[in-house]
Design a protein around this nucleic acid. Structure first.
Lengths: 83, 83
DNA sequence: ACAAAATATGCGTCATAACGTATATTGTAC
DNA sequence: GTACAATATACGTTATGACGCATATTTTGT
């Protein structure tokens, strides 16, 4: 898994997929990340941009990590963000 | 360039390096990202956690992108699916 | 269909990021 | 060392993320 994330919404989608892969509820993830279930909901939907801190907490809880690299052209998998 | 970023401070350092590599001042980066010079300063130092939005704006201005992947021990790990 | 679980929203409050503006500090020439 | 540029801090204000608590809506299982 190595997903590109350019918007809060893409990040939310990635987080949601990782959570479901582990069969965790938003509540379980919230507890592990030290946040509320409602906050997880908002992060996953990407409607409201979150704090960097919160995102990092969620990623850590999911055993994921963030990488920063030069913008690539297409040979990276982009998150299909179309309904 | 593909740097690991687990804390706001690490992210700040990566951003600062990318900015200097381009020989931009904080003011120039701020203008391109739609933020203040003071905000860039805080993001680079990582002292105050920023909004995800702001980080994404800065990364876009620097032609960088964010990737999310499984936490790796050392180098690359291909145990894609746990459980 | 029904109940239960999971998820999405609402509301008032608090905490704080970012703002505008300005100044203080540091770095880099000449 | 003296300007000048660049960066870090300060102060009051504004915008909003996250909180607690609650409820509405959706999804899932029987």
């Amino acid at each position: 898994m190595n997903d590109l994330a350019r918007t809060p919404r893409q990040i939310g989608t990635i987080i949601q997929r990782a959570r479901k892969k582990r069969d965790w509820t938003q509540m379980q993830l919230a507890e592990r990340a030290g946040l509320r279930q409602a906050t997880i909901s908002m992060i996953e939907s990407g409607q409201k941009p979150a704090k960097l801190e919160s995102i990092l907490a969620v990623l850590a809880a999911l055993d994921l990590e963030l990488r920063i690299g030069a913008r690539s052209k297409g040979h990276e998998r982009d998150i299909e963000e179309l309904f």
